[in-house]
Design a protein around this nucleic acid. Sequence first.
DNA 1: ATCCGATTCCCGTTCAATGGGAAGGGCCGT
DNA 2: ACGGCCCTTCCCATTGAACGGGAATCGGAT
Lengths: 251, 251
Amino acid sequence: MANSRSGETVTERIVRVLETFDTDRTVQTASEIGRRARLPSSTAHRIVADLVECGLLERDEEQRVRLGMRLWELALRGSHALRLRQAALPFMERVQARVREHTQLAVLENGETLFVERLSHPHAGANITRIAGRLPLHASSSGLVLLAHGPEELRERVLAGPLEAVSPETATDAALLRRVLAGIRRDGVVVAPGTVEAVSTGVAVPVREGRGRVIAALSVVLPRDTPTGPVAEVLRSAAAGISAALGTHRP
Amino acid sequence: MANSRSGETVTERIVRVLETFDTDRTVQTASEIGRRARLPSSTAHRIVADLVECGLLERDEEQRVRLGMRLWELALRGSHALRLRQAALPFMERVQARVREHTQLAVLENGETLFVERLSHPHAGANITRIAGRLPLHASSSGLVLLAHGPEELRERVLAGPLEAVSPETATDAALLRRVLAGIRRDGVVVAPGTVEAVSTGVAVPVREGRGRVIAALSVVLPRDTPTGPVAEVLRSAAAGISAALGTHRP
DNA sequence: ATCCGATTCCCGTTCAATGGGAAGGGCCGT
DNA sequence: ACGGCCCTTCCCATTGAACGGGAATCGGAT
């Protein structure tokens, strides 16, 4: 935009503004947004006003600001994530009914695991993942599945790069991870105890689209001591169901 | 932005670009977008490139363009729609398990009914509503509930304004609608046969948040001849459950 | 080979956006 | 009541990011 000292486009700044919102920060003042997005106060106020004008943001009763329903609508209306989700949801429900724990669907997004859907049983245990939340690829069962079937170039970059531990038990050794990934490709399932949280075990399988390309990972989070054998089978058949639904749902 | 002949802000134009996407137009060329958003070709190409740069749009294999996962993520991460949805989902599943038809959740957005969630039974009948889809307030059971409990000023405006029929049986008479709305406030439920599609009947109830304010409508779509008595009761108790979940979920 | 449309590159023009500063307004603690 | 603090709104001179017409290039279809 004109005269930005920093040489940014308006678009970038809008994204930075939207980025200041997250699960535990759903309403903010315009000044807060400015600070968090590193924008001069007057600029932040103007951009926020613009976004409110367009409906992407909304003002609540106390002139604080939150994400607008219009943004939600625009993001979902034409989204293919929605198609995947709609295809997957019935099968996820079935999994959840059988396993009675957290059931989640994740995709690969910009080198990270992005969780697209999550069903939580009322009595299920801990789970840090959230819808629209992210985790590193090497640090969750879903991520490992996506990494195992992702482009080799990405796999090498992740294995080379810094592998940070999310929990004390997260595997951060490249050689070990390589064996795990090979195991996933061989077995079609991964069991990852304690990689995200010490008290829980993730079990994940790949979800394929028509031509066999892996487009998502379906996973459940179990208490650490639960036997995983039956769960894997439930997940596998659900993933097959999702693939079929994706194939037939639209010509 | 600088030099826009039409005096629009970049923000407006970005929204116009995003608006060109919808359920049956999820991938487009930059030129198509320009035409649909009424932007000069070179401008459209630049804006699209900017948006791709920021991840709000993505290019597919044939350099066509679609909504990006990043947009989806930003829109959902800090969204209160998500909170409502998460609270409602388990109860919607229960309704769907019992009724075995389309179950949907709608909110009031800018004078229209906006559908936030929809579960569809595999064997359920016709249903034109879609997630992130809209309908006029007077033309669906959900909309009638939202209208009945919406601000009076809005109600008067809608009743005064042109009332277009979605199906031949949509009620478009202000006096009749007034009676229907009063009935909703009295009975806490509405049964709307044929207002959206001749072959189906909508049944909807209000969903209230802690202080009793109506924030959403929960509805099912039944084949025209189905008895609606038991359904209303299932919906009412689900709505109560959602209210309770909303109240307790966060302090 | 020839069209037609999409896309990319170029470049002079220009005003929308910028951001510092000042002033207004509300809340809280003293 | 008062002063401090912060959010917000208004003002305005400055300026370079965005604009868009046009030409060139690419690519698929006929």
